[in-house]
Simulated scan of single mutants.
Amino acid sequence: MAQATGNFVTNLPVLDGNNWSRWSIQMKAIIGYQEVVDLVEEGLPVLEEGATEAQRNAHKQNKRRDCKAICLLHQAVDNAHFELIAGSATAKEAWNVLEKHYAGAAQLKKIRLQTMRRQYELMQMDEGERIADFFTRIITQVNGMKSCGERMEDAAIVEKVLRTVTPKFDHVVVAIEESGRVEKMRIEELQGSLETHE
């Protein structure tokens, strides 16, 4: 958690390449707290020719706030990401560089998730496979999908397992389905029931 000293955050989350989604949410909150979010999102307003003294003073204040925002960004990235944004003249430019960098990563994650979904849909328990091994395969696939942003409820996984176990477990599957517990059943509980009958 970030701590504030006076009006400045001293303990920032650090973008390390694996945490863009979480980091960007945290940084938007910190940037909002520091009252510089407008500069990150909209950019530094341009000072028009023949500006009044008040407009020049406002521009000077905005430049100071933009420096504060870019300073926050510099402190909240690891060395590799710092190199990406080091040449950025404004906080908006630095933020856009990071967003563009991670847009490709997000697209890759979507493609990988589609592949994992397909593999998950095709998973079946092999003849002679032990329940523990089948559950390990299922859980490994589910964890991979969750790491790509997929939300999966235990009930959906339980139903998947019940549909895909070998026919020798048909009597157990029928008993579980008739008990009406499928929606509330935990994965571990199902594994225990199936291993008991193995």
Rank of each mutant, 00 (worst) to 15 (best):
A2E: 11
A2C: 12
T5P: 00
G6S: 11
G6Q: 09
N7A: 11
V9I: 15
P13D: 07
D16G: 14
D16K: 14
N18E: 14
W20A: 01
I31H: 00
G32H: 08
E35P: 03
V40H: 03
E41Q: 15
G43S: 06
G43P: 02
L47D: 02
L47H: 01
G50T: 06
G50F: 06
A54L: 12
R56K: 15
N57T: 13
H59I: 02
R64M: 12
D66I: 00
C71A: 15
L72S: 01
L73E: 01
H74N: 12
A76Y: 04
D78Q: 09
A86M: 10
A89E: 13
T90S: 13
A94S: 10
W95R: 06
K100W: 03
H101I: 03
H101G: 03
Y102P: 00
A105M: 13
A106G: 06
Q107H: 10
K110T: 08
Q114L: 09
Q114W: 04
T115E: 09
Y120K: 05
E121Q: 14
M123F: 04
Q124V: 12
M125Y: 04
M125I: 08
A132G: 06
D133Y: 03
F134W: 02
T136W: 02
I138M: 14
I139T: 15
T140P: 01
S147Q: 13
C148L: 15
C148Y: 13
